[in-house]
Design a protein around this nucleic acid. Sequence first.
DNA 1: TGTACATCAGTGAACGCGCGTTCACTGATGTAC
DNA 2: TGTACATCAGTGAACGCGCGTTCACTGATGTAC
Lengths: 210, 210
Amino acid sequence: MPATADPRSARTPTRERILAVAQDAIIVKGFDATSVDEIAAAVEISRAGFFYHFHDKNALARALIERQIVEEGEMLNEITARASELLDDPLQQMLIMMRLMAERYVEVPGGYAGCILASATYQDRLFDAEVKAANRRAHLVWRERFRAHFDCIAVAHPPREAVDAGDMADMLNALIEGGMILARGMGDPQVLVRQVLLAQQLVKVLYSGP
Amino acid sequence: MPATADPRSARTPTRERILAVAQDAIIVKGFDATSVDEIAAAVEISRAGFFYHFHDKNALARALIERQIVEEGEMLNEITARASELLDDPLQQMLIMMRLMAERYVEVPGGYAGCILASATYQDRLFDAEVKAANRRAHLVWRERFRAHFDCIAVAHPPREAVDAGDMADMLNALIEGGMILARGMGDPQVLVRQVLLAQQLVKVLYSGP
DNA sequence: TGTACATCAGTGAACGCGCGTTCACTGATGTAC
DNA sequence: TGTACATCAGTGAACGCGCGTTCACTGATGTAC
């Protein structure tokens, strides 16, 4: 990876560096346990300097979550685009998308940015209604996106068992969030990858009629 | 529910009441955001009184996690026992166990105690090696328990696709943890229940050969 | 080209509040003789 | 049955530290005329 692209480098704008450093720390320790002081120190500015960029510690949380939503969306766009370049059949597309997702989690073992959302979910109090709404929207976007895809699949490949496409979409999301928890809790990053690949197999079985 | 069995009642030992009250608060707000002060106030003792029962705030976390592990184990024992009373076939047993689990999550909408473990996973710093090890052990117990069951199923009902029994076991766990995150994040407790029932359908499809 | 002003990206010191923790002490209950 | 001592389940007040936040100020860069 080129040094200039590292968001922690001194050359990138301070605000970006704060976000990058904060994200790393929050993933490891949680939001509360990450002090403004240590974030500022890591970026080599003063504590007051931090408040020039974010009027609140809450503002940092919001920025992090919103950034995460955007990045996740872009990742899904990329993966969707690549899958539809390669194949026409919606089931085959889905299977390859899941493979691409799994590969992403191999690349970034341990530093799953997705947990930002999950960990936010477990710290209600901190975050105002705006943040909660953004979080909720992110989950709904994910659901609608994949629901549509599963609907397409069902048309071409009637499932062996009648399932709700929205539930299937949620399952992918839940399995990734839950896989991250297991991976951390068990100290084995591979758990997440294996869960995505297992889900892929189950999707295949469900829609590959006799 | 009988009033005498309510762990928040003034009749039950103070230590138990602290645990119950703390668990409720931590699930809603997270560990850091729940102060010793408010726990003590809810139990109607002084802050110092709290430290008579738990030498540390960390000791509270440990007790909560260990209790959770025990309770989860008991729940699984119950469910397993009921399933093997009703049916002989391991696949049918598994399917009924999953239905019983789903029913549990209907009963307790919103107050999923399981999150205690998940939220602990996202707050490394707080908890010493002992707590982390306990958490890890809990996941491994879950995996081995269900791995054995999936192995049995595979013998009687060869799966349509070769899957790892350990991964299947992890999937149940991941889906429940992830389902809780989705349920909270989307503000819809039903999401969790639907995920467990969907997983049930997928298990059925996977092992119900032609 | 020089001067005046504005904006940007911070600094350093201070404030105050809440939180976890400690400690000397206390009243009620149990036990030994 | 009475007395002495021990243990249990706390209380109340105090301490000190870290944290988020504020505020007056500053040097560097950009812009207008």
